[in-house]
Nucleic acid binder design. Structure first.
Lengths: 332, 332
DNA sequence: ATATCTTATACTCAATTAGAGTATAAATGG
DNA sequence: CCATTTATACTCTAATTGAGTATAAGATAT
C-alpha cells in the first residue's frame, strides 16, 4: 500500500446559493472589506471530526456565515489545480475546493451576518438576454475577434474563431454555455481575474497560467465584463449557473425557488430570470400543464393587475426527481 | 480567518475506465488477492507536490497501476461521508474520494500490471436489457416488494413502493436510473456491501448506516445481485455508468470509444452495450446521419458478413462539444 | 357604463420529429 | 440458383414544437 500523506492539502466547501426575487436571480456573497480586496462565496474548511458528510459540513458553514438553513443542495465540482489561490500556495498548501449549488426561497438577511444578495448578472453582464441581446455581449464579442486576430498563426486563429462562434452562437444563443463563455473571456484576458492572476505570479510561472493572450495588460475598464471575485470564485459561480441552467431544463428544480402556491407566470419568470432569455408564454404554459408536475388548487391570485391567475401547487407525489424531459425552446 | 486543519483527511482519486469490445462494456479493475478481500477501482492518493492538477494526478496513478494513458477524462463526484472506508476511519482518518470517468479504446493489458477488464454487467446483472429484460431484475423486484411490505408503517411502505416503481419503471425501463436502482437495492440490503458495511460497524453506530432494513442479515446468495467491490467502489461505479448513459444521449462521447473509421452499426452496438437496451436500427441511422457529427469516408467495411457497410469518420471540426441533443428512444 | 389596459387562457396551424414498419440492395456460403 | 446476413432507402402515422390569433376576466380611467 502506498503511503498517504496529505498534510499539505486544505479542503474547503464553497456554496453558490441562488434565489430569485422580482425577476432578479441573486446569489449570496460575502462582501469585500477590511483587508479583503474581493468579495467571495460563502465557504469554510471541511472538518471530518465535526461533519459526518460533506454536505452537512457545507450547511454548517453556510449557517454560521449567513444564517441560512439550506434545503436543496447539489454537489458540483471539485477544483484542485495549481494557481488557484496564491495565499495558500505561498505557504506550500494546495487548496481543494468542493463546490455546491443551493436553491432557496427569497428572504432577508439578519443584521448579524455580513452576507448580502447580489444579482448574478452583475458578475456576468453579457448573459442577460431577456429584453434584448445584452449590449456587453456584443462589445465583448468585438474584443474577442481582436484576440483571435492576435493569434500567432493561422491554425490557432481559426481555432479561436471557432470557439468564439460556439460560445456566442452564430446561430442561437445558448444560455447553458455560460461556463464556456466565461473561460473563453478569461483566456482572452477580458476578465479582471485573468490579469490579476497573471500579474500575481513570478515571471517564469506565468506561461503556465491559462492565459495565452500576448499582452494581458491591455484589459482596461473600457469593456464591461462584470465584478471580479476572490480566487477563482467567479469561475465556480459560472460553473454553478451554467449547471443550474442546464439542469432546469430536465429536472423539476424550479419548485425549490417557488412558494407553496404559485401562478404559471411566476414559474416562467423564474426560469427566464435564471436562463436570461424570454420564452413564449402560451407554449410554456402548455408544457407545464402537460408535464403532470403541477396541479390546480382552485384558488386565484389577485395580487397582480389583469385577469386573475389560477394558483397551482406541485404534486407531492413526485418525491423522486422526475426524469420527464421538459424543454422550453420557444423564444419570444 | 478560520484555522485550517486537514491532517486527518486523505484525498484519493478513483477512476472508472470504460471501453467496449465485442458488444461488452468493460471497466478496468484491480482484482482482489493476497490480503485484499475485494477487487477495486484503480486509484491512488492525490499529492499536490507532484501533480499540477487533479486530473493529471489521476492519469499518473492510472498509468502506474494499469499502464494506460487516459485520453477523455471527466470528473464525476467527490465522496466524503462517514462510514465509507472502515480501514481509514479506524485510524481516525477521513477518506475523500474524487471519482472520474474515463473512456478509452479497447486494448490489452501488459503482463506487468495486475489490472484486468471486466464486463460491468457482472456488477449490475439487472441492468442488461438488450436481448430481453434481465432475469435478475425481476427477481430483485420481488425481493424489493418484500422489503416494502416490511416497512414499519403505511406511509413508509407507500414511499418504498413509489421508489421501487420509479426505479424499475412501471412504464418504461430507464437506463439512466442505474444509480437510483443501486441505492435502492443497497438500502434494501440486497447488495452484498450493505450487509458487509452493516456488520462491520459497532452496534451503536449501525442505525446511522444508510440501511434501514429490519433484518439485513437475510441477504443470502439466493438472489443474483452482482459482484461486490472494495469500500463503496461499486457505488462509484454505479454513479459513473449512470452518468455515462445520461451524457451519451446529448453529447458526442461515443467517438472516444470508436476507432478512426467506423460503421453505423458499430456506433449502435456501443450505445446499446452501454445503455443495456436495443434500439431501432433504421431510426438510429437516421438520427446519426441527420446529426451532422459524422461524414462518409467513401470506403467500405467488408469484415462482417452481409452487405458491406459504409465507413464513417466524425467531423474534426467539432472540437467544441456540440450541444446538439441526440436522442435514441426507438426501442426494438 | 364604457373604454382601456393588463394579464390569463383557449385554440389553431404548419413544420418538424419520433416511433414503427416495409421494401430493396449487396454481400456470403452452400 | 438458393438461403442467410447485414445495409440502406423509403413510407406512414402520431406526437411534439414553434409561432400565432382570439377571447376572457379582472382593474382603472373617463
Amino acid at each position: 500500500m502506498v503511503e498517504f500523506s496529505s498534510n499539505d492539502i486544505v479542503v474547503s466547501l464553497s456554496a453558490v446559493i441562488v434565489s430569485v426575487e422580482n425577476n432578479r436571480p441573486r446569489i449570496l456573497i460575502l462582501p469585500s472589506g477590511d483587508n479583503k480586496e474581493y468579495a467571495s462565496l460563502p465557504s469554510g474548511p471541511y472538518s471530518p471530526e465535526s461533519h459526518r458528510t460533506l454536505e452537512l459540513g457545507l450547511k454548517a458553514w453556510v449557517k454560521s456565515r449567513t444564517g441560512f438553513d439550506l434545503g436543496y443542495v447539489e454537489q458540483l465540482y471539485t477544483f484542485g489545480n495549481l494557481f488557484r489561490s496564491q495565499t495558500f500556495e505561498e505557504k506550500g498548501l494546495r487548496l481543494l475546493t468542493i463546490s455546491y449549488l443551493a436553491l432557496i426561497l427569497p428572504s432577508g438577511i439578519s443584521g448579524d451576518y455580513n452576507a448580502c444578495w447580489q444579482n448574478y448578472y452583475d458578475f456576468f453582464p453579457w448573459e442577460d438576454h431577456r429584453k434584448e441581446r445584452a449590449a456587453s455581449a456584443d462589445k465583448l464579442l468585438e474584443e474577442l475577434y481582436d484576440w483571435a486576430d492576435e493569434a500567432s498563426d493561422r491554425v490557432r486563429r481559426l481555432e479561436r474563431l471557432e470557439r468564439i462562434q460556439f460560445a456566442f452562437g452564430g446561430g442561437r444563443w445558448d444560455p447553458d454555455r455560460l461556463l464556456f463563455r466565461y473561460e473563453l473571456l478569461y483566456e482572452a484576458a477580458l476578465i479582471t481575474e485573468a490579469v490579476r492572476d497573471w500579474n500575481a505570479w513570478p515571471k517564469e510561472e506565468r506561461v503556465k497560467l491559462p492565459i495565452n493572450r500576448d499582452n494581458p495588460g491591455r484589459l482596461t475598464c473600457k469593456v464591461e465584463s462584470g465584478i471580479p471575485l476572490m480566487y477563482d470564485d467567479r469561475r465556480i459561480l459560472a460553473s454553478a449557473i451554467g449547471r443550474l441552467r442546464g439542469k432546469l431544463r430536465y429536472r423539476p428544480l424550479v419548485f425549490e425557488l417557488l412558494p407553496e402556491k404559485f401562478t404559471l407566470l411566476q414559474i416562467q419568470n423564474i426560469v427566464e430570470a435564471i436562463d436570461g432569455v424570454s420564452l413564449h408564454k402560451q407554449n410554456f404554459r402548455r408544457l407545464l400543464l402537460s408535464g403532470g408536475l403541477i396541479k390546480e388548487t382552485g384558488e386565484m391570485d389577485r395580487t397582480s393587475p389583469g385577469r386573475p391567475a389560477s394558483l397551482f401547487t406541485f404534486r407531492q407525489s413526485i418525491h423522486m426527481e422526475r426524469q420527464n424531459v421538459q424543454t422550453w425552446n420557444g423564444r419570444n
